[in-house]
Amino acid sequence: MLDDRARMEAAKKEKVEQILAEFQLQEEDLKKVMRRMQKEMDRGLRLETHEEASVKMLPTYVRSTPEGSEVGDFLSLDLGGTNFRVMLVKVGEGEEGQWSVKTKHQMYSIPEDAMTGTAEMLFDYISECISDFLDKHQMKHKKLPLGFTFSFPVRHEDIDKGILLNWTKGFKASGAEGNNVVGLLRDAIKRRGDFEMDVVAMVNDTVATMISCYYEDHQCEVGMIVGTGCNACYMEEMQNVELVEGDEGRMCVNTEWGAFGDSGELDEFLLEYDRLVDESSANPGQQLYEKLIGGKYMGELVRLVLLRLVDENLLFHGEASEQLRTRGAFETRFVSQVESDTGDRKQIYNILSTLGLRPSTTDCDIVRRACESVSTRAAHMCSAGLAGVINRMRESRSEDVMRITVGVDGSVYKLHPSFKERFHASVRRLTPSCEITFIESEEGSGRGAALVSAVACKKACMLGQ
Rank of each mutant, 00 (worst) to 15 (best):
G227K: 00
L355G: 00
Q18V: 08
Q138V: 06
V207Y: 02
L45Y: 00
H416T: 02
T228I: 14
G246F: 04
V335M: 11
V406T: 01
N240E: 12
Q465E: 06
D344E: 06
V33R: 00
M462E: 06
H424G: 09
A454L: 08
F148G: 04
Y413T: 03
R327L: 14
M402N: 08
E27A: 15
G72R: 01
L304I: 06
V427M: 09
Q106W: 04
L451D: 06
I130W: 04
T168M: 13
L2V: 14
G410V: 07
E322W: 10
E96V: 12
K420Y: 06
K39A: 11
G264R: 06
T431F: 03
E290R: 05
V305P: 01
R7Y: 14
R369L: 11
G170P: 07
Q18S: 15
V427I: 15
G81D: 10
V154K: 15
T60M: 07
K56E: 01
A10N: 13
G80W: 07
D132W: 06
D311H: 06
A460R: 10
K142F: 08
A425F: 03
L276A: 04
A320H: 14
T206D: 04
N283T: 13
E221W: 02
R325C: 10
A329P: 04
A53S: 03
C364I: 12
K15T: 15
R7Q: 11
R392D: 05
V335W: 02
D3L: 03
P359S: 03
G285I: 03
E312M: 05
R191W: 02
H141V: 10
T149H: 09
L25Q: 05
C230L: 09
A449I: 11
D4K: 08
M37C: 03
D262C: 12
R7I: 14
E265G: 08
V181E: 06
Q18R: 05
L146Q: 02
V200K: 12
T361S: 07
K169Q: 03
L357S: 14
G246N: 03
M238R: 02
S69V: 12
Q24F: 07
R394L: 04
D363T: 00
R192E: 00
G464I: 04
A11N: 06
R368K: 04
E27N: 02
Q138Y: 05
T168H: 11
E112C: 08
G294I: 05
L386H: 02
G175H: 09
E128H: 02
L58F: 11
L430K: 00
D4R: 06
D3K: 03
V277F: 06
D198S: 14
T118F: 05
L77K: 01
Y61Q: 09
G444M: 05
D113M: 07
S54V: 14
Y61V: 05
R275W: 02
V55Y: 01
G261K: 00
R186D: 06
Y273S: 05
T118P: 07
V55F: 03
E372L: 07
C233W: 06
A232R: 01
F150W: 13
M202V: 14
I211Y: 14
K142N: 04
E17N: 10
M8F: 11
Q138I: 04
S441A: 13
I293L: 06
K291G: 04
D344Q: 03
Q347L: 12
E40S: 06
L301F: 12
E399N: 07
E279L: 12
E272I: 04
D344H: 03
D29C: 09
V199C: 14
F423V: 09
D194P: 07
G356T: 09
K13A: 10
D158Y: 09
L288R: 15
V182K: 04
D400E: 14
D267I: 05
E112Y: 09
G318I: 05
R369T: 10
T103E: 08
P145G: 06
H317E: 14
P417C: 08
T437P: 00
R250V: 06
M37H: 00
R394W: 02
V62P: 02
K13F: 14
E300Q: 02
E96L: 12
E268V: 10
R397L: 01
L266R: 00
K140L: 13
G410P: 03
T206M: 01
W167Q: 12
G175W: 04
Q98S: 06
F334D: 02
E51I: 04
D73M: 02
E443W: 04
R85W: 07
T376S: 11
A320V: 12
D198C: 03
I293A: 08
A53K: 03
L430H: 07
F330R: 00
E177H: 03
E312W: 07
R345S: 10
E268S: 14
S336C: 15
F316V: 06
Q38W: 13
G407S: 04
E319W: 09
G175F: 10
Q287E: 04
S100R: 12
G97Q: 15
M107E: 15
Q286Y: 09
I211M: 11
L144A: 02
T362V: 04
T228C: 12
F316R: 00
E14T: 08
F171V: 15
G97I: 04
N350V: 10
E70F: 06
H380D: 12
S418C: 13
V154R: 09
N313R: 09
R5P: 10
M115V: 09
R85A: 13
E268L: 03
F260W: 06
F150R: 11
E22C: 05
L75P: 02
E216W: 01
E28K: 10
V302Q: 00
N180R: 15
E443V: 10
R7T: 15
E421S: 08
V452F: 13
L288D: 01
L355R: 05
A21T: 06
L357N: 05
L304S: 10
E95F: 11
C364M: 10
E268F: 04
A454P: 03
R275S: 14
N254H: 10
D247Q: 05
R358T: 10
N231V: 08
G407T: 02
G448M: 12
I366S: 06
R392T: 12
K458P: 03
V62R: 02
A425M: 11
D198T: 04
T362E: 12
S69C: 06
Q98K: 11
W99L: 08
S445C: 15
V244L: 08
E17V: 08
K458W: 05
K102M: 06
N204D: 10
E95R: 10
G80Q: 04
F423S: 00
E268K: 07
T376K: 13
A6W: 06
L79R: 06
M251W: 02
V389G: 00
H416V: 09
A370T: 09
D42M: 06
R428A: 09
L304K: 04
C457H: 06
E279V: 09
